[in-house]
């Protein structure tokens, strides 16, 4: 009987196939850290649940929609974003500061973290894979307009692109321009238009007609 070629383990069920090496390394760390009392398993589960299910770009969309409809909040947000988003219940865990950068007809803001992947988790959740990739991290700085074009974003020649490099202490959120055709819309209606990519700055928020047309 040849067992070296047996990949599907259907011969008998006297053992469980060990998981891949990466998973074993995590299990080793987790069990040791919990055993030593360095990590509380309830805290660990709560953290994972929060980031898997409770924080995400909808938090940021709510911040943007409020800034579009409430001049006082917008002012507070641009003056001290950390405080302003905390007033909506979105608090950072790493003691980091948040800065909101506002797009206008003359300036378009783009956020990157050239060193690793610092990102405003509290308002955007965890970053998408491309944000963490080496090509994005370098090209957002060296040729931001080409990167924007790849996301389908064409800016007027007169619009200046401002790139913001995040750090462990300071993260950025882009406040996109409110699209035309949304006069009188509620915060909830506006928030539904705001995409994660627009808050990173690789896209703009499209007017509602354009959204319908592209669907």
């Amino acid at each position: 009987m040849s067992n070296s070629e047996d990949h599907d383990h259907d011969h008998d069920h006297d053992h469980t196939a060990p998981p891949p090496e990466l998973e074993l390394r995590v299990k080793a760390l987790e069990s040791l850290l919990v055993e030593k009392g360095l990590v509380n398993p309830d805290t660990l589960n709560e953290i994972i649940d929060t980031y898997e299910h409770r924080v995400g770009p909808r938090n940021g969309a709510q911040v943007v929609a409020k800034a579009w409809t409430n001049a006082k909040f917008r002012q507070a947000l641009l003056a001290d974003a950390t405080d302003a988003v905390a007033s909506l219940g979105f608090m950072g865990r790493q003691g980091e500061h948040l800065k909101v950068v506002e797009n206008s007809a003359s300036v378009h803001n783009l956020v990157v973290c050239t060193l690793c992947s610092c990102y405003p988790w509290t308002v955007l959740g965890l970053p998408p894979a491309w944000y963490k990739s080496a090509p994005y991290r370098s090209r957002a700085v060296s040729e931001p307009r080409a990167v924007l074009a790849e996301f389908g974003t064409q800016l007027a020649d007169t619009t200046r692109v401002q790139v913001w490099d995040s750090t462990a202490e300071l993260r950025y959120l882009v406040l996109p321009q409110r699209p035309a055709g949304t006069e009188g819309w509620s915060e909830a209606q506006l928030a539904a238009l705001v995409t994660r990519n627009a808050m990173i700055g690789v896209e703009v928020v499209n007017p509602p007609e354009t959204n319908e047309a592209s669907r």
């Binding site: 998981p19 990466l22 995590v26 299990k27 760390l29 805290t43 953290i47 898997e52 865990r93 790493q94």
Partner: peptide, 20 residues
């Protein structure tokens, strides 16, 4: 957000250690 549960655990361990 995570491709596999081990990614979530590795992520959570760092935040838990930082919190502690």
């Amino acid at each position: 957000v995570f491709k596999a549960p081990w990614e979530a655990t590795a992520f959570g361990l760092v935040l838990a250690l930082h919190k502690a």
